[in-house]
Design a protein around this nucleic acid. Structure first.
Lengths: 209, 209, 209, 209
DNA sequence: TATGAATGAGTGTTCATTCAT
DNA sequence: AATGAATGAACACTCATTCAT
């Protein structure tokens, strides 16, 4: 029988459970994520979890919203230090890299909740995802206005490509590390670096007036 | 009691099981992949499966080797028609895109076996992956020799970046389609196209002598 | 924290809980009857329920007492309009039919508490059931005195038979409706009617002096 | 780990499980009927149960089919010894009484599978139920032809009334025994007897030609 | 006295793996 | 070698009951 720690505020309990869920996700990944483990890590009974969340999937949905919120925040902070749009975009790529180094199971989480079978409402997640897209687009548009970025490129499309490219590289770096032979001879930061440089050189406005 | 196909050579049995497993994977995906279904499709008893494979994960590991082998093959065919190195690399990117469109459950498979918890030896998979890397590297090196590709780039690193970028874009296209708002306004082939162009322009040797 | 209705007398609280339980039972049936819902409907805390009732089953037991009390009341009203004993008995049968049409979850309740595993004391229920039996018996005895009912019949036994027959027919009508083929060709009221007629003709005193 | 008793025929295992389920049902009733208990009683693992039955409800459906089959059989045997239709009907009533004395939880079972939420196919059960109805109707029709039964009565309706009446009386006798005060002063067989007599006198053809 | 957060045993169901035949 | 019946741990989720406040 568990004792103590009663009479926390409901919101704190939710956060406590969410934190435990976060740890479990990091530990074992989505595939082996179980409510039992969440309860154990939160040091509460399994039933208690269900007092605060309707289902396992609801926890996961909420976790994903937190994840992308944090990512957006990270992007905002990372870009604040820069003035030039291209530098801002570079900073975003590096921020994403560092973010997923710390929170690498979030990839699985996002893939999980984006599956068609997942029927929990993920409006929160979608909304923040859209905010990230908008945030990046606004940087591109600003850069085009200031003549820093090639104005013939479609901002929306461009952001999608940058985003996809960057995520792809990050995932590659993370998952292939243990598999590819001679991997230690490949400095992973350098892979990111090249990728970022490539992106930058691909979008720069080389027709200065 | 099953009849017929008894007393095949051990290797043939393995292949028979693997083929069945492949069909099951294509049919139902990783999540619902079960040994029961493999046995049914292979028309053998479940116990027999375990005579040839230690575990479900071992089957999956071997399947992944088949998957990357097929990918390598696809790359070889796709590049055969081209002479210029950059065109070959472009062809590889498009071939990968088409490959994953046709075999999209292989993404799941690869993600599954690449998870840290997956403790089966995947030397076969790693070896072929390495072959793919080598194959791509040889194209880059050849291109540098012929003056088509910027010679200052490290071939190994470059291939990793191209590969990562490409896979990332493909995954993005496949998984994000259903979620992101306004996605139908984004022509997915165009995302790939931009990505490929970017890659090409990033590596071309613009300092012709 | 709930406010208002505090510091009621213990008896009032019991009734308040019982009323809530009644509503829950009518709403969702025995199968889905939960203490949670009772507490919500009573607008009190779940723990409070347990201050007034030892267990869920005790609530159900008391509810059954209320149920049969209402049934007795219904019988008393239904018979008041009639003078002849046989008409009174007929009226009782029809009243029971209508009662269970309106309160059909009470059938489930009674079945539940009458199960052998049910180990709560149901003296209240038994007592009212006995009152119903007595009430019916008195009608029979009166009818025999007035020469309307065959005097050779044992009143207690007769009432049991009438009662059982009637309940049986009602249950049949209620539960079989959805299953039995051609059921729509069987007018259910007619089944009740025949049963009532049979009963009446079986007990009438046809040896008038 | 359980051992032994392998390699029974599949049909025998099904029957073994069904028998165990039958015992569990008799022991604890529908409400507390669990697969765990079935497995324990059958002395097999829980998973084994699911090799032979898709779900708990499928077991229950099959049990119900067995139950009504046995009932039909009982009726056929009970009527064989009699020539006169009314005697046959009486015999059916008594047979039902004896049947439910032995298998008294079948009432719950039948009520359970007849609930609208029950979505397993119960065609087997419905078919046998219909056979019972047909069997009884044919006796009535034959009796009317031979002039033993009042020919103005609708056979289908009449059978329903007899059936409902009889089941009602039986249920009453079974469930009320432990509740009703002075019940031991009421010979239960006598209740059945009166009921049967009433039925018989209600349908006899008293206008002999 | 009243609260309601917390509990945890218990449900039906799945499936990788074992092992007697 | 091949079988496939049997296993049982694991899972998500429920709810009557308890007890610190």
């Amino acid at each position: 029988m568990k004792v103590g720690s009663k009479h926390q505020s409901a919101e704190m309990r939710r956060q406590q459970i969410l934190s435990a869920a976060d740890l479990v996700l990091i530990d074992v990944g989505i595939e082996d994520f179980t409510i039992d483990q969440v309860a154990v890590r939160a040091n509460i009974a399994k039933g208690t979890v269900y007092k605060y969340f309707k289902s396992k999937d609801e926890i996961l949905a909420e976790l994903s919203t937190k994840a992308v919120s944090l990512l957006l925040q990270t992007f905002q902070q990372a870009t604040a230090k820069h003035n030039r749009s291209i530098e801002k975009l570079k900073a975003i790529c590096w921020a994403a890299y560092r973010y997923y180094q710390t929170h690498n199971t979030y990839h699985e989480l996002l893939a999980y909740i984006e599956r068609p079978e997942f029927d929990i409402n993920v409006q929160g997640y979608i909304k923040i995802s859209q905010s990230i897209q908008d945030f990046c687009e606004s940087i591109v548009i600003e850069g085009q206005k200031k003549g820093e970025i090639n104005p013939t490129l479609n901002p929306q499309l461009l952001v999608r490509v940058i985003w996809a490219t960057n995520i792809g590289v990050i995932q590659f770096v993370q998952t292939k590390q243990k598999l590819i032979q001679n991997i230690h001879e490949t400095p992973m930061d350098e892979v990111i670096n090249i990728s970022v440089q490539m992106m930058a050189s691909g979008i720069v406005n080389d027709k200065k007036d």
